[in-house]
Write a protein that binds this DNA or RNA. Structure first.
Lengths: 241, 241
DNA sequence: GACCCGCTTTTGACTATACAAATAGATATA
DNA sequence: TATATCTATTTGTATAGTCAAAAGCGGGTC
């Protein structure tokens, strides 16, 4: 028999991850959940505390509890929203959409992504420019099945990573980081020499086992690095500021 | 006024991070903590739950709660114990200590590491060989002040990363990941060509604001990558298996 | 309008207690 | 001796409340 607080946790998590409750939505008050589940407030509170810890919920006295804005707040992901990182470091950042087209996923790529051939995808190539210098090429595939709104999104206002994050909470992410030599096309776009070392990041994201996006980001080795400071303690205890 | 459960959390955390209570040591029973702090068992339990979440404590019915074996279980770190990663992937792994000497930290390096010149350090160069191929050069500095036992450790049995982990729990870590070209020395050791792309990882670790170690690991780009799958949910709820 | 005051809602911390589940160690049995 | 059974200990979940702190809201005063 599953503990009640875990049932509550999973129920709410499911509502959020499925997109049923969207970022900013208010979630039921503790008292209502007490009524719904027929349990004590401590039990509800335990579930909500875990959801805050998980990063899906924010709570505020008097106002209530809300679905949190999805955030890349853990693990490597911290490092990888180029725009935010650049802004934080005090640099000016802009991006250019190089190509943007709707296709169907071919069999080879489907196998590679562990997805199914024939589904509709949006393929985007995007260049990131930080401090006036080309700093990353982003080659991305978005599954239109999972994110239908992407079909009409131009990505001019916010780059794909940022836009996606505001649309879809992720439940699983896979990363690969490697060093590669620049191929001809990449070298031309980034204005570096062929063969120069590049930092290559691949990220694939799922929402409840439905693939959301696959992206490969290539940085010139001399113009970018991933950096992060980790205090493992911080996450466990979160006193209000 | 700080909540009691946070006081308990911090007290125990401090005992563990200072090395006062060592991995495997039993920590006071909940009932004893109740007496010590003059609070209810629920409050103690909340603190202990947070410590489990933080990864510092394991609890077991009937037997009690214990200081957890330090583990690299979060963030990028998952990926970076070469030996473990190699073994998991089914490869044979061994390492060779190339050089090992005790020095004092020079002013330039001290500034670079944000440490103080003149302190005694152990400098180690180490080669990692996976599946018969040289896969990483590790250049490491260990502060003998913080880790006195390192003075007499040969690192033949366990490579420095693993040995350190068993000795010192970390409270803060800083990472940098970049792509670089192999310099002459690195190329020779790794048996690659000068200029080949390499994945370069720098990690600096502290225990309570005392620096523990600084390490730079260089991988041939074609022979190594960091990969990881993240389920942000897992950490928040930890049901007993 | 600008400011202060108090009311009300909602979460935050905590208590004292109860019973359940796991299990190490002792005891009894074949 | 080996195995099954019991028991005591310790954590795990849950209850049903209390009091406190934050903060939105409205009213009154100047």
């Amino acid at each position: 028999m599953e503990p009640i607080y875990i049932r509550i946790f999973k129920d709410i998590e499911a509502k959020i991850l499925s997109g049923d409750w969207r970022p900013g939505d208010r979630i039921p008050r503790e008292h209502d959940l007490v009524d719904d589940y027929g349990c004590s407030r401590m039990t509800v509170s335990k579930a909500l505390t875990a959801l805050v810890e998980r990063g899906l919920v924010v709570r505020k006295r008097k106002t209530g509890s809300f679905v949190a804005a999805p955030q890349i707040n853990r693990t490597v992901m911290d490092i990888q929203d180029i725009g935010t990182a650049a802004t934080l470091a005090g640099y000016e950042h802009r991006h250019e959409i190089l190509t943007r087209k709707i296709e169907t996923l071919g069999p080879v790529e489907a196998a590679q992504l562990n997805s199914i051939a024939g589904v509709e995808i949006l393929r985007i190539h995007c260049l990131h420019i930080v401090d006036g210098k080309p700093t990353a090429v982003e080659r991305r595939i978005i599954l239109l099945d999972t994110v239908p709104l992407a079909r009409t999104e131009s990505f001019v206002g916010a780059p794909p990573a940022k836009w996606l994050l505001s649309q879809v909470p992720w439940s699983k992410a896979k990363h690969v980081i490697r060093a590669v030599s620049a191929d001809a096309a990449t070298a031309r776009i980034l204005k570096i020499d062929r063969g120069d070392p590049c930092l290559n990041l691949i990220r694939q994201t799922w929402q409840n086992d439905r693939m959301v996006t696959y992206v490969e980001i290539t940085h010139p080795g001399d113009r970018f690095q991933f950096a992060g400071i980790f205090h493992p303690a911080e996450s466990a205890l979160r006193q209000q500021p």
